[in-house]
Each structure stands twice: as structure tokens, then as C-alpha cells.
């Protein structure tokens, strides 16, 4: 009887959990406060300047589609940059992804390869584009190289994570037939990871279309070049038109790629 009554008592919150919870909240607010200074947060100024902002915003409307042929042409180039940047990255990320998988190669192979991949993706596409402008000059090809290098670093990591999560059983099954190490990968691992790989590649293509719209700002071709020029020359109505092109294209590809990825998983 007493035991039954005791069990109806809701569990008491113990002191330790309460203290930990309190400290966690304190830590979160502490970090926010610390970053306030460095980020020079001045919300009042934003409010004071909002009048200017409104006048400024008026210049953006209505959008000026006078040069729509140019925007369309450059938008297509942007998509073409993303296509080649992603395709080259996928091709290179397959071997590099395999070489960064701890269940395929020994540590003295995957550790260095992983570090190089870390380096490739820790540098932003914009920075790569700036570097490639100096070697291959202004133009879409610079954009392709920038996306290619950055995306290789990302896809190699994603591909290798898929490999490391795969079921070792079938791989051992293939090994037991006397297959070569390459045979084990092609028969045992690839069929398992392929749907995931396709999904990752599509997702990166989607992201690369977004990225390709900005690498143009540093001269790497596509709609970004147009965007930068109209902003710099204060043609705000045309800026709006170019941005509408970007929004529509990115949204269309995001939706299409999301649908396509669903089909593969």
C-alpha cells in the first residue's frame, strides 16, 4: 500500500540537473554578450537609419527588366558553371572519398587525405575564385574551378562518411570469393552507397547554383558579374530584376533536386 502511494509521487527534480540547466543558460547568454562587442551591434542606429532605408528601397521598385535577355543568358551561364563545377568534383571525390574512409584504407592514407580535403572545403568558393582569377583570368572557367575545388572537399567527406556507415557483411561476402581489393569496393561497397552518393551530389549541385551566383562578383562569370555591375553603378531597379532571376532559378532547382533526391533514398 505504501509502496503504491509512493510511486504516485512525481519524481523530484534533483539539484544537480537544475544547476546544470541554469549554468547552460548562463553560458548561452554569456556567449551572446561576448559577441555583441566584437560584432559592433547597434540596433538603435538601424532604427534611426530606417528612414534612409525606405527612400533607398524605393529606388529598387519597380524592377527594370529592360535587359532581361542579358540576365537570362548570364543565368544560364551560371547554371552551366554549377554543372561543370559539380561534375568535376563528383569524379574526383569518388577516389578521394574512398581514400578517406577508415574502413577501406589504413590510417596513414586516410589521415593525410582527410586533412587535404579539410583544407579544400575550409576555403570558401569566393576565395578560391579570387585565387583562380590570377591564374586563368576573369570568366566562367574561374568559377568552375572555384566550385570544383571547394565541392571536392565537401563531397569527399560526405562520400567517405557513407562508406564508413556501410554494412561490412556484403563486403566480406565478396572478399570470401577471392575478389581483389578493388572488386570488394566495386561489388561490396558501391551498390550500398550509390543512392546516398547520388543524393549528396544533387544536394551539392543545388548549393553550387547558389554559390555560382556570387562567385561572379569577383569576376568568375555568370549572373554575379551583372549583379555586381548594376549595384556598383547604382542601377537598383536593374539589381532587383537580376535578383528576381536568381531567386526564381535557385528555387526551381532546389525544388527539382529535392524531388529527385527523394526518388533515390
Amino acid at each position: 500500500m505504501t509502496a503504491a502511494q509512493a510511486s504516485l509521487e512525481p519524481p523530484r527534480r534533483d539539484l544537480r540537473t537544475s544547476v546544470v540547466k541554469l549554468l547552460s543558460w548562463a553560458a548561452i547568454f554569456g556567449v551572446l554578450a561576448w559577441a555583441w562587442e566584437g560584432a559592433e551591434m547597434r540596433p538603435l542606429e538601424f532604427l534611426r537609419g530606417s528612414g534612409n532605408m525606405l527612400t533607398f528601397a524605393k529606388d529598387f521598385f519597380p524592377p527594370d527588366f529592360h535587359d532581361w535577355r542579358l540576365y537570362l543568358q548570364e543565368m544560364v551561364i551560371t547554371v552551366q558553371i554549377a554543372i561543370w563545377g559539380t561534375a568535376l568534383a563528383v569524379v574526383l571525390a569518388i577516389p578521394l572519398g574512398i581514400l578517406s574512409s577508415s574502413n577501406v584504407v589504413p590510417w596513414w592514407v586516410y589521415q593525410p587525405v582527410r586533412r587535404v580535403m579539410d583544407a579544400l572545403r575550409s576555403i570558401n568558393e569566393m576565395v578560391w575564385a579570387l585565387l583562380f582569377v590570377t591564374t586563368v583570368g576573369l570568366g566562367p572557367f574561374t568559377g568552375v574551378l572555384a566550385l570544383f575545388v571547394h565541392t571536392t572537399g565537401i563531397l569527399a567527406k560526405l562520400f567517405s562518411e557513407a562508406i564508413e556507415a556501410c554494412d561490412p557483411g556484403p563486403v566480406e561476402g565478396i572478399r570470401s570469393t577471392g575478389a581483389s581489393a578493388l572488386g570488394e569496393i566495386v561489388y561490396g561497397i558501391l551498390p550500398q552507397v550509390l543512392p546516398l552518393w547520388i543524393s549528396f551530389a544533387l544536394y551539392r549541385f543545388e548549393s553550387n547554383i547558389r554559390a555560382a551566383t556570387v562567385v561572379g562578383i569577383v569576376g568568375a562569370g555568370g549572373i554575379g558579374v551583372v549583379l555586381w555591375e548594376v549595384i556598383r553603378s547604382f542601377h537598383y531597379a536593374q539589381t532587383t530584376a537580376a535578383m528576381i532571376f536568381i531567386i526564381l532559378t535557385v528555387t526551381a532547382f532546389d525544388v527539382a533536386s529535392a524531388q529527385l533526391r527523394k526518388a533515390f533514398i
Binding site: G169, P170, S176, G178, P191
Partner: peptide
């Protein structure tokens, strides 16, 4: 690996490649 090709191995979990 070459010797293994003459040894058949049957596993408890079958270990076929599902796809």
C-alpha cells in the same frame, strides 16, 4: 585472394549485396 577463390564461404547473415 587467389586461394580464396576456390573456397566457398556461406555466412549466417548471408552477406549478399542487397541492391
Amino acid at each position: 585472394r587467389e586461394r580464396r577463390s576456390r573456397i566457398g564461404f556461406v555466412f549466417q547473415q548471408f552477406n549478399l549485396v542487397g541492391r
